[in-house]
């Protein structure tokens, strides 16, 4: 029989642990939930059992999937616009101190005012509900990208800057080969935060907007089910919101590791 390398075995064990343990604990929690609901005979309009939520998810899949797709569109679009706007303005901030000082207060005002408080106004001024929701989600996701990009672009090592000057690099070369790579770790950290915030913004704004219109997202399904006392459907919609959040988190984490993994401290696995 072949004896495996102990280091390799330890790695495999570690990987199994990282996959099996979370799944096992979630399954155990669901099992306990199912059991307690069944054992105590809790009525489904108070707390539905996981099996009932799953059944509802399948039964109402057509409407729920449509709503989920709407929320996904809203989240991704607002995140993309936040990235585009945040990066562009962040670059402008890094280039010109005057621009930064003049515009930063606006960015801060947007950031500190709760989106729930501005959403009704935006809904009044913007005719299309989709665009109004988009603006709300964008406001929430925009700030971390802006501030981190601006800080990141300024964080390049001073000696490296001197070196670029010594070799008479053009402003474009300096941006491309020095400032952008230096800013990437900051940008990636912002992206992880902004991804989650875009989803929260999309859901919160929809709550404020209510269930107006046909083509609406998961938040409207939750509100609507709450009005009709359809608790299992509420849970099903809630479940989908969490799944979206988890997917966004995993994607941004993966992206960060893919971009920074080979050099940045935050993503390097240390051998002990």
């Amino acid at each position: 029989m072949k004896t495996a390398d102990p280091a390799l075995q330890a790695m495999l064990r570690e990987r199994n642990l990282r996959i099996i343990m979370p799944i096992a604990s979630i399954l155990a929690a669901l099992g306990l939930w199912e059991f307690l609901v069944w054992y105590n005979d809790v009525p489904h309009y108070l707390i539905p059992a996981p099996s009932l939520i799953a059944k509802t998810l399948i039964q109402d899949w057509a409407t729920l999937a449509q709503s989920a797709w709407f929320t996904v569109k809203l989240t991704l679009l607002s995140l993309s616009l936040a990235i585009a706007g945040g990066v562009l303005l962040g670059m402008l901030f890094a280039l010109s101190r005057t621009v930064e000082i003049s515009l930063f207060p606006f960015a801060v005002i947007l950031q500190v005012t709760p989106v729930v408080a501005i959403a009704p106004l935006i809904l009044i001024y913007v005719e299309s509900t989709f665009w109004a929701l988009l603006i709300c989600a964008w406001i929430v996701a925009f700030f971390p990208i802006l501030s981190n990009t601006a800080i990141g672009l300024r964080s390049a090592d001073h000696n490296l800057r001197d070196m670029f000057r010594l070799y008479q690099a053009t402003p474009w070369q300096r941006l491309r080969y020095l400032l952008i790579p230096s800013a990437l770790p900051y940008f990636m950290a912002a992206l992880k935060i902004a991804g989650g915030l875009a989803l929260i913004g999309a859901v919160v704004a929809e709550f404020v907007a209510g269930t107006a219109g046909q083509n609406t997202g998961l938040a409207s399904r939750i509100l609507e089910s709450s009005f009709r006392n359809e608790i299992p459907r509420m849970f099903a919609a809630l479940f989908l919101v969490s799944v979206l959040g988890i997917i966004i988190f995993l994607t941004t984490s993966w992206l960060s590791r893919a971009v920074l993994g080979h050099w940045h401290e935050s993503e390097i696995k240390r051998e002990l």
């Binding site: 070196m163 790579p181 050099w263 940045h264």
Partner: peptide, 18 residues
């Protein structure tokens, strides 16, 4: 083009991503 002078800093000053 700055190529006739080489400069070595106190620290190695390398780009960590490259």
């Amino acid at each position: 083009d700055g190529s006739d002078v080489g400069y070595v800093f106190q620290e190695a000053t390398l780009m960590p991503w490259a």
